[in-house]
């Protein structure tokens, strides 16, 4: 079914514009999904407050930017969100002894409501945004006939960097390996002298960090409000499931799929349906292939070993 809006002469630029928009949103979804995965791998918990980390990153950066230069404001926002992540783990999660999944779902949803209400109290309902990092909201860059705003390059670039940095951290550093060891086999990790409790705190700190970075780079485009974390959490969760829970490489691919599907859906569906796509995908994948698009029986077997 070809999009009707293309008219008689399909315009290639339009195609690219939609593609670029899709990739931009896909990057953000992937970042949120990776945040889910980091905590899931360390604890088996789905942290439904993940979207709130993104919101906090954006909101705090906007506030700090009133009296700090932009890079410092973003750095400060990331650090503050990391501290929030650590506090959440230490106050709400750490003392729980082998909690049930349902209990964890209720607790993390509770945390997300708590953060949202606190944000409402601090910032009110107003919608805010950081300025574009370079150029302005009206200027754009010409990439082979396609005009894209410079902030999109920032989103995709910073997203790619964050993913690469995380991957390096998990695969090349002792600390990253310790975290992977804890998620592979907690008791065996403790028998190697690894403090599993600290690794869980670290997972909250890391996923708060990546969420906040995402929130800061994307808010010039999407704006940010006290409750903008929730829809992102749903999208990010869809992407995490689509890629296979815990698999961050696949989350990047899945993020692109959802972002691009949403973006092109405007051609064939009324705009109102755009939001329904992720829910539809989520339900479909949960029914058809709960291990995720890229989840293989082999990987699942290895994980359970």
């Amino acid at each position: 079914m070809l999009p009707i809006v293309w008219g008689k002469e399909p315009k290639l630029e339009f195609f690219f514009q939609y593609l670029v928009a899709g990739i931009t949103y896909g990057t953000i979804y992937a970042i949120v999904a990776i945040g889910f995965n980091i905590i899931y791998n360390a604890t088996g918990i789905i942290n439904f407050a993940q979207g709130e980390f993104v919101m906090l990153g954006g909101m705090t950066a906007v506030t700090l930017n009133q009296f700090l230069p932009l890079p410092l404001a973003i750095l400060g926002a990331v650090v503050i969100t990391m501290i929030v992540g650590a506090v959440i783990e230490i106050v709400f999660i750490r003392w729980l002894h082998k909690p049930s999944v349902l209990r964890m779902v209720i607790i993390t949803i509770g945390i997300s409501i708590l953060i949202r209400e606190t944000a409402l109290h601090i910032w009110g309902e107003s919608v805010r945004a950081l300025p574009y990092f370079t150029g302005s909201s009206t200027s754009s860059i010409n990439l082979g006939g396609v005009y894209i705003s410079s902030q999109i390059l920032w989103v995709v670039g910073v997203g790619a960097l964050a993913v690469a940095a995380l991957s390096g951290f998990f695969n090349l550093t002792m600390l990253g390996r310790q975290m992977r060891a804890c998620s592979a086999n907690r008791d065996a990790a403790r028998l190697c002298g690894i403090d599993a409790g600290n690794m869980v705190t670290l997972s909250f700190v890391l996923s708060a960090a990546i969420g906040a970075i995402g929130g800061a780079v994307v808010c010039p485009i999407t704006y940010v409000q006290y409750d903008s974390g929730t829809p992102l959490a749903i999208k990010g969760f869809t992407v995490a499931i689509l890629g296979g829970l815990g698999n961050s490489t696949a989350a990047v691919g899945a993020g692109m799929i959802l972002g691009i599907l949403e973006s092109f859906s405007i051609w064939v569906l009324p705009t109102a349906y755009k939001e329904a796509i992720s829910i539809a995908i989520l339900l479909l994948i949960l029914f058809v292939k709960p291990s995720g698009l890229f989840g293989s029986a082999e990987a699942a077997r290895l994980k359970e070993f």
């Binding site: 310790q178 592979a184 008791d187």
Partner: peptide, 29 residues
């Protein structure tokens, strides 16, 4: 473990999704 008492657990319990070298390296933590 830090005091010098290590255990090889029942059923081996290796870190399955990690490489052999990484497993050994983690033992040296």
């Amino acid at each position: 473990v830090f005091l010098g008492c290590s255990m090889v657990p029942e059923g081996r319990q290796v870190f399955a999704p990690m490489t052999v070298r990484e497993n050994i390296l983690l033992g040296a933590y």
